[in-house]
């Protein structure tokens, strides 16, 4: 192995030959990411084309920034961008905040069996799809049969048309996000708490610190690296193309057009432009816009995290 350094002048070919078994094992994965990740990256050029699916990328006309001009002319893009950013900020703060509290409280429960049961139940929604989430939510919000309107009715309150009142969705969506994800974050935090040495708590106990003070002064700061990673990952997902977790925005409101102002985000907007209108120009321009904003967001949050704690940064 050590000899490899001395023979640095050997050409690429002899490295490939020497470790040919490794490179053969690498080949399917490498080819795959080139095909499925890098070719689509090059494919963003269609945002500058009047793309014709029959002629393909080579045959379509180049139109410069026309698609972008067209896109930014409508108010919709601004609206969905704002929605995307605001919802994700709310998700980030409430999701991580609730999870931190939940993890600390679960850890304070002496009864192992109960603590384990709570963890299991909290994590279960994480494994369900948003399509299933749509069904679960519908059983509560259905106008004529839903549990919530029945409950309101028993207090003499008029039934609410949940699927046509945008106002409520600004709270329903964050609640749904928390319902699905808090268990996931909490389990990560719980593992982090388990890794904190008990000496800190014993010392604090001797100094007369209350449980609450211990949580604020020891647990929360010690969990900071995990919090930073979660923030970074979530910030990246915010604008992460079609492959982030946007199913909730598409499924939960059940395609109710009245709600779009409150529920539409960039992904649903792109998806609908492509799927229902077949508008390649618009949706690819919006897609490139989204990818670029996402890229910048990751760089910014990474830079901030780097300032705070070098080791937690992604690069």
């Amino acid at each position: 192995m050590q000899g490899a350094k001395a023979r640095r002048t050997i050409p690429v070919l002899s490295e490939l030959l020497k470790n040919r078994v490794f490179y053969l094992m690498m080949l399917p994965g490498l080819l795959y990411i080139i095909i499925m990740y890098y070719i689509p990256m090059a494919g963003v050029v269609i945002a500058f084309q009047q793309f014709n699916p029959f002629k393909g990328i080579g045959g379509s006309k180049w139109i410069g920034f026309e698609n972008f001009k067209f896109m930014f002319q409508s108010d919709t893009v601004l609206q969905v961008t704002l929605n995307t950013i605001l919802y994700n900020l709310v998700f980030l703060v409430t999701g991580i905040g609730f999870a931190l509290i939940a993890a600390i409280l679960i850890n304070s429960i002496g009864n192992r069996l109960l603590a384990g049961a709570y963890k299991s139940i909290l994590l279960l929604p994480y494994l369900l799809s948003w399509v299933v989430g749509e069904y679960l939510l519908f059983s509560f919000l259905s106008m004529d049969k839903g549990i919530l309107n029945q409950l309101l009715g028993s207090f003499g309150i008029e039934p609410v048309q949940w699927y046509s009142e945008p106002f409520y969705w600004r709270f329903i969506l964050p609640a749904a996000y928390i319902w699905k994800n808090v268990g996931y974050f909490a389990v990560i935090y719980a593992a982090g708490i388990a890794g904190i040495s008990s000496e800190y708590y014993e010392a604090a106990e001797l100094d007369g610190a209350t449980k609450f003070q211990q949580a604020i002064r020891i647990t929360v700061p010690m969990l900071m690296p995990i919090t930073l990673i979660l923030v970074l990952l979530q910030a990246g997902k915010m604008f992460f193309g079609a492959f982030g977790d946007w199913g909730m925005f598409y499924n939960l409101p059940m395609q109710s057009g009245v709600l779009y102002g409150a529920t539409d985000v960039i992904d649903t907007y792109i998806y609908r432009s492509l799927k229902q209108m077949g508008d390649f120009g618009m949706s690819s321009a919006a897609g490139l816009y989204q990818s670029l904003v996402g890229f910048v967001l990751v760089l910014i949050s990474n830079a901030i995290i780097r300032l705070y704690d070098r080791d937690s940064a992604l690069f």
């Binding site: 080139i34 689509p40 090059a42 990328i57 897609g287």
Partner: peptide, 29 residues
């Protein structure tokens, strides 16, 4: 460690986390 080009390839893998082509090129591909 004996795979010399692992750093370049690892970078290619990490970069996919940062930037992607979006839905439309993916769909067309």
């Amino acid at each position: 460690n004996e795979v010399k080009y692992r750093h370049i390839v690892s970078f290619l893998v990490v970069f996919c986390l940062l930037f992607n082509g979006g839905l439309v090129p993916w769909y067309i591909l």
